[in-house]
Design a protein around this nucleic acid. Structure first.
Lengths: 338, 338
DNA sequence: ATGAAAGCGCTAACAC
DNA sequence: GTGTTAGCGCTTTCAT
């Protein structure tokens, strides 16, 4: 339990003032190379590590990021946290994790749970990042934040998202290239920004391949399994039955598969189905679902980078980032018959 | 970005000194009820939350716990973290998460990653908690710690464990009560403390039910699938073939099931199999494996409690806790034939 | 039962 | 380039 070395110890050992030590540690300019080396050596010998508390108290930065989440799936939590930690480590930042109840979030809750820790910035995951109340409270508390995959309010501060539009376009083009001409699309929840993006990507693809967009082939869902069943039943009743259905979410896609089965249609022989999200369930259906995987870990890493950049310089220009998704072709897609 | 209220603001609003505010906040004695109420009201009106940095700098406690882990499974991480957070929340503590590479752990790494944050205590999960090097480094760094499910060095400080022995005993008794008289046991890795505990529980049960312990029915494994196959093949070759095999770990148990299948034995008709750990894989085999579930979340919660208690008072007497496991009877166990 | 004053270990202005 | 000084917002010790 030996007393920890302080900046003063390092300074006297190196024969300089504490300010110089501070300069070296914070990589400021105006330190001669010889002095820098001397300070670094002294710090190393003493096993010196600057105190987060003292830094946070004295300076403008706390070197702490907070990750807010609301009952995420195990895998989502692990991926997001892993991605953020990876970058925090590299930048000598620490990560505190804070579970929240999105529904119960108030200015007061935010203050109580976060004001004391004073992180340099918050990283918000869905669904917290889509709560206007949370955003209000965070702004009022004077904390900066970066959102991961926000569904709306894209104008309210920095965020990192997957490029849903581009991915939907790419997957649709794959279906077209397989030979499908009648491709239906089931949209996700109308309030969710990504749902619209995905639909736009689908339209992009049809246009790019010279196919006309038939609004009769576009149904509205809400990301739920049930909405998938309902929408698919309507689509499969059409005279010109689609040979492929691209669902804006994996749960919708599972609904489509059930509806197809009820109709006696075999997937993918009689109907190709594609989803979006690569949810764990998408691998546990048969055939395994063709879908789109979001780069969750990379998104979290990018969010941490943005958050730390903003902490250094609130004027940082880059405030948003769209990352490419991965198309995961599995068993539910094939060339149409005949 | 309004300036945050400080203890001085609260003090002047309540018409007392900052020391009195500090007393109220820290629940010290010697404050009149009327004054306490006045301070609390002022704090609430100002939305005051004490600064972690200032507290950590001035006082002996940092109100921060650090959770160390090394590539845990998604579910383990989520459970451990959830359990710890639950208690941190209640006590106004924060949790920082720190991934480590157990193999690469050195005094230097510990210092670099943790000395700066100065948590009041560390919570160590396997396998970090079984690294003597890590324990040395942590002790040298003067940090207190609580280990979750340590496999050895139980004398080196506080820990929380599942009551493996009692659980193994209970499950073995269940097998005996089903009618099994020839129950084999496959031990886990000899270096792992829990492996020995589980075996002891098995022996306890045989004794309690008046059965003799036949060392020929006890095989040595190492927690791996392969060791399960090998051990089971030997056991199933015995003249007096066991009617049940209790494996000291789920992976071993999966090996047993494969070995049984190769012999043309049907589980559970011809052979009952039980595992230990309730790993995700145990639910994904057929039939689903009878096993023992450790109370991971509760263990983490208890570890956080212990850690915070030690932070308040390093002399705290309670330094270890054993929590009961849950026996999970699934499809691999049944009464023996005939 | 309450208050005054002295730091904790840093960073930020400003001096030199 | 480098040093000096003044806090940051608390807890602690010691008065009263």
């Amino acid at each position: 339990m030996s007393k920890r070395a302080t900046i003063t110890d390092v300074a006297s050992r190196a024969g300089v003032s504490i300010k110089t030590v501070s300069r070296v540690l914070n990589r400021e300019r105006n330190v001669r190379e010889a002095v820098r080396a001397r300070v670094l050596a002294a710090a190393k010998q003493l096993g010196y590590a600057p105190s987060l508390s003292a830094r946070g108290l004295a300076g403008a930065r706390s070197y702490v990021l907070a990750l807010l989440f609301d009952h995420p799936s195990f895998s989502y939590l692990a991926e997001v946290q892993g991605g953020a930690l990876e970058r925090c480590r590299a930048a000598h930042y620490h990560l505190i994790v804070e579970p929240v109840e999105t529904g119960a979030l108030t200015k007061r809750t935010i203050e109580e749970t976060l004001a004391s820790a004073r992180p340099d910035a918050l990283i918000l995951t869905p669904p917290v990042c889509d709560s206007a109340l949370a955003l209000d409270a965070i702004e009022q508390a004077g904390l900066s934040h970066v959102r991961i995959a926000p569904g709306r309010n894209l104008d309210r501060g920095p965020w990192v998202r997957a490029n849903d539009r581009e991915a939907a376009r790419a997957l649709t083009e794959r279906l077209i290239d397989m030979g499908h001409a009648e491709i239906a699309f089931i949209r996700g929840h109308p309030d969710h920004g990504a749902a619209a993006e995905r639909h736009t990507g689908y339209v992009d693809a049809l246009g790019a391949r010279g196919l006309s967009v038939d609004d009769g082939l576009v149904a509205q869902g809400d990301f739920s399994f049930e909405s998938g069943v309902a929408a698919a039943e309507a689509l499969l009743d059409l005279v010109r039955r689609p040979t492929a259905i691209f669902a804006g979410g994996d749960d919708i896609a599972r609904g489509v598969m059930v509806a197809a089965e009820r109709r006696g249609l075999e997937v993918p022989r009689d109907l190709s189905v594609a989803g979006f999200d690569d949810s764990p369930a998408s691998r546990r259906v048969w055939p395994p679902l063709t879908t789109v995987r979001q780069p969750i870990r990379a998104m979290a890493a990018a969010a941490a980078d943005l958050a730390m950049a903003l902490a250094c310089d609130p004027q940082t220009k880059e405030r948003t980032r769209s990352l490419p998704c991965e198309i995961v072709m599995r068993g539910t897609t094939a060339a149409p018959r005949g």
